[in-house]
């Protein structure tokens, strides 16, 4: 996986549960779980904007590039 997701860390920093964030952002817990494990094909700017707003962080705090190239098959 080339893009790593650090949502759990940001949730801990903000003392917020995953469920609370889901309710605020307006996505399902299933989708949040997929996002945490990096199994989604993409994330909309609107969703990213809300996550950053409610977690009071930057995009780079949630998503980080690990220096590898993602294979096409890894997307699914």
């Amino acid at each position: 996986m080339a893009i790593r997701v650090y949502l759990d860390e940001q949730l801990k920093l903000n003392n917020m549960t995953s469920k609370q964030l889901c309710e605020k952002v307006g996505i399902t817990e299933a989708n949040m779980s997929l996002l945490k494990t990096g199994q989604v094909k993409g994330i909309r700017f609107a969703t990213l904007n809300k996550i950053c707003f409610y977690l009071n962080c930057n995009v780079g705090d949630i998503l980080q590039y690990d220096g590898e190239l993602m294979e096409e098959n890894d997307e699914n």
Binding site: I27, L34, L35, V40, K41, G42, I43, R44, T47
Partner: peptide
Amino acid sequence: TTENEGFI
């Protein structure tokens, strides 16, 4: 549509 549904 399928691709769009993969986005959250």
